[in-house]
């Protein structure tokens, strides 16, 4: 049945509104689910099986040795392949599997190929997060009491590595990196933490 002449404009307008709303809903959903909710994020497969535990827990390499920008700017940055070769020019790995992985890194350097890692932690594009500012705050010894991401009280200023664990969990002991278990890194988490620490929650603090 064809709609009557009076219904047609309403139906067209309704269709347009539905399409727009649908688009908005999809965008919101993508935005919401792009960052795994409720701490349900899993560990993506990586091109090189890099064990943080061997480097950090066993060999005491500081976080900022590889993530060179983490105390200096917005992004923590992953190390250049050349930096891996600082050590792995000489260090071959103790196990066959380790040697296989290290060989991948050497091959990447020799063939001039970058390594494309799967991002484990990410924030939406409209969010600005500055690693340096957060590390500076938590390591500031002049602030007597600070609060962690779940409201836990911090009375002794952590060092850089300990600060990293507040959001990322104890990455240094893990062979495979995945989001902190049960920890959502969503806007509510940010706001709670900012409020607990009496830091501004103005929109423009975080949103571009």
């Amino acid at each position: 049945m064809m709609p009557s002449g009076k219904m047609l404009p309403l139906m067209v307008a309704g269709g347009i509104v539905t399409v727009i709303l649908g688009f908005v809903v999809v965008v919101l959903l993508i935005s919401w689910f792009s960052n795994p909710p409720f701490g349900l994020g899993n560990a993506p497969a990586q091109p090189v099986a890099f064990p943080h535990s061997v480097h950090v827990a066993d060999n005491n390499i500081q976080c900022e040795f590889c993530h060179r920008n983490v105390t200096k700017g917005a992004a923590a940055t992953v190390p250049a392949v050349e930096q891996c070769l600082f050590c792995h020019q000489e260090i071959d790995g103790a196990t066959t599997s380790a040697q296989t992985e290290i060989e991948k890194v050497r091959t990447a350097f020799e063939t001039d190929q970058p390594i494309n890692w799967e991002r484990v932690h990410r924030l939406p594009d409209h969010v600005r997060f500055i690693h340096e500012a957060h590390i500076r705050y938590f390591t500031d010894e002049t602030i007597p009491v600070k609060y962690g991401i779940n409201g836990e009280e911090i009375t002794q200023s952590p060092d850089v590595a300990q600060t990293c664990t507040i959001c990322h969990g104890d990455v240094g002991t893990k062979t495979v990196v995945q989001p902190k278990a049960g920890q959502s890194l969503k806007m509510g988490t940010c706001l709670d933490c900012h409020r607990n620490n009496s830091v501004s929650t103005d929109c423009t603090i975080c949103h571009k």
């Binding site: 999809v26 959903l29 919401w32 792009s34 349900l40 497969a45 392949v81 890692w117 799967e118």
Partner: peptide, 20 residues
């Protein structure tokens, strides 16, 4: 929704450049 609306694997890479 989780799988469908989430970012597909491989779409968000973070790259180790070869040189410092």
């Amino acid at each position: 929704a989780c799988e469908g609306f989430g970012i597909r694997r491989g779409e968000l890479n973070i790259q180790s450049p070869v040189r410092l």
